[in-house]
């Protein structure tokens, strides 16, 4: 099959970008979308031009490094599939495919299709962990976890941190990403001691990074390669308001929290 590409090329954050047209010829439909870009890049290199920069690593849909908005949809046309697991059979012969970077204020562009998603790391640094140092854990079976809780926590923990939810949202909100991590940890007994502190700190950091507000349109869930449910946003909101309005005395030395 043959396809035409319109790819966003931008040398760096300070220079203006533009769509540039390319042709990909004799493409095998069983090729992945990124392998098709590899072929285009090999061709560009042979013609003495700079290849298209794009992020990728595991190419099996789990590392979250690949991004790209393909024909207006983060991670392309297939439901619950990342860009790297998108295959050319999802497009038709002769189609023009538009490829852009994830666009959000909190994800500044680096080059071409590559953006900076370190804002996500900073949100995790704010509270997306259990404060347990190596060596201080009780036996793994000392605290029993009901299977439904563990399963639900796993559903949330499946997030790969790619940022498609932000790219899809008209407000560039990171609520699905943050909610997934808050829910994963808050659902488990091991995460309970820091439940309130975690949700407050992570939401504050999320706002500081410049992510937008959530209006629950659900576009995030629709494009999520792991199908993380919008219900986790509702759960996070409950945790958030619960923590915000928690009454009662606080320990005297709680200044740091």
């Amino acid at each position: 099959m043959n396809v035409k590409l319109r790819v966003w090329r931008q040398k760096g954050p300070q220079t203006a970008g533009q769509f540039v047209g390319y042709e990909a010829k004799n493409i095998n439909p069983n090729m992945s979308f990124l392998e098709m870009l590899d072929v285009v890049n090999e061709d560009l290199t042979k013609r003495g031009q700079e290849p298209i920069a794009f992020d990728h690593d595991c190419r099996e849909g789990i590392c979250g490094m690949c991004s790209c908005v393909i024909n207006g949809e983060p991670h392309g046309p297939e439901y619950k599939v990342a860009t790297c697991q998108t295959y050319m059979r999802s497009f038709h012969d002769g189609e023009t495919i538009t490829v852009e970077p994830f666009r959000a204020k909190a994800f500044p562009l680096i080059k071409d299709l590559v953006v900076d998603r370190t804002a996500f790391d900073r949100v995790i640094q704010a509270g997306g962990f259990v404060s347990v140092s190596s060596g201080s854990a009780p036996d793994g079976n000392a605290i029993l976890v009901p299977k439904p809780d563990a399963d639900l926590a796993m559903d949330a923990a499946a997030c790969i941190g790619c940022g498609a939810c932000v790219a899809a949202c008209k407000n560039a909100s990171a609520m699905l990403f943050v909610a997934a991590k808050v829910s994963h940890l808050n659902l488990l007994p091991q995460g309970k001691p820091e439940k309130d502190r975690r949700v407050l700190a992570m939401v504050t950091q999320m706002d500081e990074e410049g992510f937008g507000a959530c209006t629950v349109t659900g576009s995030c869930e629709a494009v999520c390669p792991k199908g993380i449910s919008l219900n986790f946003i509702a759960k996070m909101n409950r945790d958030y308001f619960g923590a915000l309005f928690k009454a009662g005395p606080k320990p005297a030395a709680a200044a740091e929290a």
């Binding site: 854990a137 036996d139 793994g140 029993l144 299977k147 563990a150 488990l188």
Partner: peptide, 22 residues
Amino acid sequence: VNIIDQCVAQGVPFAREYGGSL
């Protein structure tokens, strides 16, 4: 054996039996 304990304490959602054990 310590690794499993550590990971559980970190909130790694290992598969569980209905009784709640690993």
